[in-house]
Write a protein that binds this DNA or RNA. Structure first.
Length: 113
DNA sequence: TACTTGACCGTAT
DNA sequence: CATACGGCCAAGT
């Protein structure tokens, strides 16, 4: 599997995150079938074409913190977008529930059983 | 080829 | 709660 394939799989997963919910980098990697390649997710998002219009702001660290350094423009932008969706962000960490596992994501995407 | 870098994670303390 | 550490893995130098 080449780099492009991996990126596309990652982008697909990120694009599926519903508004108001967030996923961790490692979580996205696992869901994309890339095991523990959490760092690849950050790379893929960095290299993602703007035209894809991905909801990249819905991807945070495993502990809920924002990956960008304090004071950076991207950090501010991510917080802005999350709050606009009703996600609480305190001290650079999200409070809204994260998507826990595949069953959770499936439920969100396909509706309650 | 060898070493460093980073939108990271899980576990231990 | 927070911090520390080892593990991870492709790209860049």
């Amino acid at each position: 599997m080449g780099t492009e394939d991996r990126n596309e799989r990652i982008w697909r997963v990120v694009a599926a995150i519903p508004p108001g919910r967030v996923m961790g980098y490692g979580q996205v990697a696992r869901r994309a079938g890339l095991g523990k390649a959490a760092r690849l997710v950050g790379r893929a998002l960095r290299e993602a074409p703007d035209a894809l219009d991905l909801p990249w702001h819905r991807v945070v660290r495993a502990d809920g913190s924002i990956a960008f350094p304090p004071g950076s423009p991207l950090r501010a932008e991510q917080v802005r977008r999350l709050r606009r969706e009703g996600v609480e962000v305190n001290a650079g960490r999200v409070r809204m529930p994260r998507i826990r596992d595949e069953a959770d994501l499936d439920r969100l995407l396909w509706g309650e059983p």
